[in-house]
Amino acid sequence: MPTADDLVETIAKTEDLIGMLHDGPKYKPYLANELGVSKSTVYNWATDLIEYDIVRRTNEGYELTSLGEQLFEFYGYVHRVTTQFYSMKPLLEALPDDHYPPFSALVDAEIVDGSAHPYAPFETLVDWIKDANHVIGTPAIISTEKLEALAPKFRSNEMTADVVLEQTDVELMERHVPDTLDAILENATVYETDRTIPIRLYVARDLSPSVGIVTLSNNRQVSMFVQLRGDQAVEWGLELYEQYREHGTRIETRP
């Protein structure tokens, strides 16, 4: 008797055929021509699928059964999720085991990497976060120029924040944009940590999506920007922020 593993293997092998039958029954010669295979191959594939009650023969050719329709929809979902997760490989590899976001949030995540343009992840991050009223997270100081552009929002109290920064980022700001650091300290709760933060997190509840995650390359460029939606993602982000805040030291004023 065929097993479930046999079924999955059969669906994977005959995916293109099932897809063609998804919008209605079709005859063997037409399927063979469209798929670029022999009629005997179509026959063999269809015979395997008939054994699982995924396909049946009709006067109008081969067609999917109700079970076949449901399995095809589910298989498509699994394929989409697998592709989505693989595209997030740099992020998932950078995350410690206890940092993983909720599965449901990852499934519908919006991903921007540098494949189309090397600066696309950073520019998307900036465009997204600049409209936030309040930000919670573990940001990285990538561009002092962009950071200075946000300083007026902090001075006018249009933007506030609760953040944990790596000590290297605090030192960078002290050297290059001390006035901006002062503006942030006046209107934000800032902690610094000597820990390495593997991914950079932004939670902005007034934006949609509400959670942003950044991975950095070896030269501290934004290599991937992932946006997550939903209450579970926000809850995860706030819990992760708290993990770093508990081990951070509050900075209230510059020396």
Rank of each mutant, 00 (worst) to 15 (best):
S38C: 02
E158F: 09
L216C: 02
L71S: 01
H176K: 15
P25N: 09
E171Y: 13
L31E: 01
Q84C: 03
V190S: 02
L228P: 07
K153F: 08
M173D: 03
Y75E: 10
H79E: 11
A183R: 01
R57H: 08
Y241G: 07
I50V: 13
T65D: 03
G237K: 13
D48P: 00
D131H: 15
A120E: 13
Y202T: 11
Y30I: 15
S143E: 07
G137P: 05
R57F: 02
D113C: 02
I54R: 00
G137S: 05
K153T: 08
E110R: 14
D98A: 11
V214I: 14
L147S: 08
S38A: 05
E239W: 05
P209H: 07
I199M: 13
F154P: 09
V177F: 06
A94H: 03
E158K: 15
Y62V: 03
V226H: 06
V107Y: 11
V177Q: 09
T14G: 03
T249M: 04
Q84N: 03
A12Y: 00
L240T: 07
E123A: 15
Y77F: 12
E15I: 01
V190Q: 06
W128R: 10
F103C: 01
T65I: 02
G237N: 12
K89V: 05
S143P: 07
A94M: 06
K146S: 14
R205L: 14
T189N: 10
P139M: 11
T10A: 07
S40M: 12
W128C: 12
D16Q: 02
T41K: 04
D6Y: 00
D194P: 06
W236M: 08
Y75C: 01
V234F: 04
T3E: 00
L67W: 00
D182I: 10
A161K: 15
G68I: 07
Q227C: 08
R56L: 12
S210W: 01
D108H: 12
S223V: 02
V222D: 01
K146F: 09
S210Y: 00
D6Q: 00
V126Y: 11
L238A: 06
R155Q: 13
E63I: 05
R56W: 12
K89M: 06
I111H: 04
P102D: 10
L150W: 09
I184L: 15
I54F: 04
P152L: 10
V78D: 00
A120Q: 12
I142V: 15
L172H: 15
Y241V: 03
G36T: 03
D113H: 04
I199Y: 13
R155C: 07
Y244S: 07
I197H: 02
L71G: 01
T189S: 11
H79W: 00
L35T: 04
I141F: 08
T10W: 00
I111Q: 09
Y100R: 14
L185Q: 06
N59G: 09
W236P: 05
Y244D: 07
F85K: 09
